[in-house]
């Protein structure tokens, strides 16, 4: 472990803000990508199923 205590880890040689925000931004965008793919899939499936139901009822 490079840091002897939790405190120095958070401070990160007073570059903490930059390091943690860059990791945070990366994780944020990756999860945004994942979520948007999942939501889009649900939306498409719902419209497909309604579409089929709509057709089936004729």
């Amino acid at each position: 472990m490079q840091f002897n205590s939790w405190q120095t880890f958070l401070l990160m040689g007073d570059h903490g803000f930059y390091v943690f925000s860059s990791y945070g931004v990366a994780l944020l965008i990756l999860s945004a990508n994942f979520l948007s793919a999942k939501i889009q899939k649900r939306k498409i499936l719902k419209s497909l199923i309604n579409h089929d139901k709509h057709n089936a009822s004729y």
Partner: peptide, 20 residues
């Protein structure tokens, strides 16, 4: 973040290297 050594020139901010 935790185990890699810090860079002698830039200190801890070098850890962004692993994402950038």
């Amino acid at each position: 973040l935790l185990f890699a050594p810090e860079d002698y020139l830039q200190g801890q901010s070098f850890r962004i290297f692993y994402v950038h």
